[in-house]
Each structure stands twice: as C-alpha cells, then as structure tokens.
Computed example of a mutant assay.
Amino acid sequence: MSIVIACYNTPPAMLREAVSSAVSQTYSPVEVIVVDDGSTDPTTREALDLLAGVHLIRQDNRGVASARNHGMSQAAGDLLLPLDADDVLEPGYLAATVPVLRGDPGLAIVSTRATYFGERTGPVDLPDPSLPWMVAENSIHNTSLFRRADFDRLGGYDEDLRGFEDHEWWLRLLLDGGRARVLDDELFRYRIQTSSRNASVSSSADALRELREAIVRNNPLHAAALMSMAFESLDVALWRMHEAEARVAHLEHHLGPVVKAFDRSPRLRAGIDRVRRWKNRRH
C-alpha cells in the first residue's frame, strides 16, 4: 500500500514529523511518496532533498489535488492513503485500517477517529459519514484509506478545485455505491495552525461555490438523488438548530436565579446578554 504526502513550502520540522509517522508504521510493506508541489522556500526544498526512505516527486505548483493525483498515479500499492505534510499518523494507523478495507469489498473508504494538535487540542468531533449529510458537510478526514482501483476508475481528485477536493472525492466514491467506515481508535493527528490551508479555504465563498458545481459536474447520473439528499441534509441541519435553541432556552431558564444573585457582576451579565442576543437573532 502507498502513502502519498503532498507538500508545498511546509516548515521542515512539520514535514519531517509527517514523513516519520508514515515510514514508522507497524504495518508493512509501505511505500511513502512525497510530492513537492513547486515549493519555493529554500528550507523546505533542502528538507525534501534530505528525506530518507521515500520516493520524492517534484512538479510545478498546480495545487494539492494535482500533487495527490500525480503521486497516486505513480504509486505501486493497491491501497492509497493521502497525508498532509503537517499532519501525523499514529504508528498503528495502517495496521488497523488496511485489514478492514481489504476484508469488506463493499467498503470504499476507511479512516479512524482523530485528535487535534498544534494551536488546538482534543478529539475531532465529526458526525457519521452518511451520504445525505455528506452532501452538505464533509464528515470524512482528508487522511482516509481507499482503493487504487477506484482512483483509476473514477479519476481521482478534481484538479479544478481550489479547496474541498477531498470532500468532492469522498462524495464521488459514496455515490458510486461504496460505503465509509470510521474506526473508533484515535490514530490520526490533525494539526491546527493559523496559516493552515484548511483555515483559509474554509472561509472562501468562491471555493464553496466551486465545490457545489464540481459535485454536480462529476456526478451527472446522480443529479436527482443529490437534490433529494440536499433537502434531507437541510432538514437535519434545521433540526440541529432547533435543538440548540432549546438548550439555550433551558440554560437561560436555569441561569435566571444565578443572574439575579450576581446582578452586580458586569462580566456575568454580559455573558447572559450574549446568549440572549444569539437566541433573538435566530428568530
């Protein structure tokens, strides 16, 4: 099986940590491919040259989707695992996921639960990857295992996307009839940093619009089903919003005596007022 790491100007220490986590897997054999997507930072380029135990590929800067596709097209493994150059696998990641994917032909994607590290810590809380919910929101980590045969058949990541390329790819695999499974073990560490690619992409309205267009463009046989699932996911989102409002009302009711008792506390009053303003904006 093959791990493909796309790199663009990644700080050397983070790059070495990601690569070390890939080459140190307890499962074997493992091929590790690092694709340099046209890095211009001399420290990154030097660190790439010094990597050991990997197959290094260099290309002009064309984006992470292109870098992943390039590396995966050169991979020798029958299973593929993308890994961002600043994230980390626990040593037993492949030992846990590979047998599960190989043991169930109906599965298209296998991943594990994850933890944040860097500027945020704690477990990554994602809903189960059901197909209707995936139309509205990605609930599968970008680092998840899938089959090389599906990559070849469905064409891999959409290189026209400037972000959310993993969301579109997972959705394409699910619409093709595959299933996704998330193992309970926390074997993937997802780095949070202010300058991370996801932090900048997630706030881009243009990137979201391009994602929706790509989902429809790449799945023409599923247009009606996509529309139905979009409405279903909207219903789920509205239900969650109403549930949150009920919790706010419950909290406000029980905090009433506290507010009266600590009426002289400006800080507490300000906090309660913020909750009330949030509730009023929902109506």
Rank of each mutant, 00 (worst) to 15 (best):
residue 58 R to Y: 07
residue 121 T to C: 11
residue 258 V to N: 01
residue 27 Y to V: 04
residue 15 L to E: 07
residue 176 D to G: 15
residue 155 G to N: 00
residue 175 L to G: 06
residue 52 A to Y: 06
residue 181 R to C: 05
residue 77 G to H: 02
residue 238 L to K: 13
residue 69 N to C: 05
residue 167 H to R: 04
residue 47 A to S: 11
residue 72 M to W: 02
residue 127 P to E: 12
residue 99 P to Y: 02
residue 19 V to N: 04
residue 68 R to L: 15
residue 245 E to R: 13
residue 205 A to R: 10
residue 110 V to I: 05
residue 22 A to N: 01
residue 250 H to D: 15
residue 53 G to R: 06
residue 128 D to H: 10
residue 179 R to T: 14
residue 85 A to R: 04
residue 92 G to S: 14
residue 208 L to I: 10
residue 67 A to K: 01
residue 1 M to H: 07
residue 183 L to F: 08
residue 85 A to V: 09
residue 67 A to W: 03
residue 177 G to T: 10
residue 278 W to N: 08
residue 222 H to R: 11
residue 176 D to Q: 08
residue 283 H to L: 07
residue 182 V to S: 05
residue 40 T to P: 00
residue 178 G to H: 08
residue 281 R to C: 01
residue 220 P to Q: 04
residue 4 V to Q: 02
residue 123 P to L: 07
residue 232 E to Q: 14
residue 273 D to F: 11
residue 196 S to I: 05
residue 29 P to Q: 04
residue 216 V to P: 00
residue 87 D to G: 04
residue 12 P to H: 05
residue 86 D to W: 06
residue 10 T to Y: 04
residue 32 V to W: 03
residue 195 S to I: 14
residue 211 L to N: 03
residue 240 R to I: 11
residue 233 S to C: 15
residue 92 G to C: 11
residue 59 Q to K: 13
residue 78 D to L: 03
residue 95 A to C: 03
residue 259 V to A: 14
residue 236 V to C: 04
residue 58 R to C: 10
residue 58 R to I: 07
residue 1 M to K: 02
residue 46 E to F: 14
residue 158 D to N: 10
residue 216 V to H: 00
residue 84 D to W: 06
residue 29 P to C: 06
residue 99 P to H: 03
residue 186 E to A: 15
residue 218 N to W: 13
residue 244 A to H: 12
residue 21 S to G: 07
residue 206 D to I: 11
residue 73 S to L: 12
residue 78 D to M: 03
residue 220 P to F: 11
residue 6 A to F: 06
residue 277 R to K: 11
residue 161 L to T: 01
residue 105 P to S: 09
residue 53 G to D: 09
residue 29 P to G: 05
residue 242 H to T: 13
residue 256 G to D: 10
residue 109 I to M: 03
residue 38 G to I: 13
residue 31 E to C: 02
residue 33 I to H: 00
residue 237 A to W: 12
residue 100 V to N: 01
residue 223 A to R: 15
residue 199 A to V: 12
residue 44 T to V: 11
residue 165 E to L: 01
residue 31 E to P: 07
residue 74 Q to I: 00
residue 195 S to C: 11
residue 240 R to N: 14
residue 71 G to R: 03
residue 280 N to D: 15
residue 130 S to M: 09
residue 240 R to V: 12
residue 90 E to D: 12
residue 249 A to S: 10
residue 76 A to V: 13
residue 84 D to Q: 06
residue 255 L to R: 01
residue 233 S to N: 14
residue 172 R to D: 12
residue 13 A to L: 13
residue 244 A to F: 10
residue 253 H to P: 01
residue 282 R to C: 14
residue 1 M to I: 02
residue 191 R to E: 08
residue 150 D to R: 00
residue 150 D to G: 02
residue 45 R to L: 15
residue 256 G to M: 08
residue 133 W to G: 07
residue 245 E to Q: 14
residue 132 P to E: 11
residue 152 D to A: 13
residue 247 R to H: 09
residue 36 D to Y: 06
residue 1 M to Y: 06
residue 19 V to I: 09
residue 190 Y to P: 05
residue 183 L to I: 07
residue 62 R to H: 13
residue 137 E to A: 04
residue 196 S to F: 05
residue 71 G to D: 08
residue 201 V to F: 00
residue 107 L to F: 10
residue 42 P to E: 01
residue 146 F to I: 00
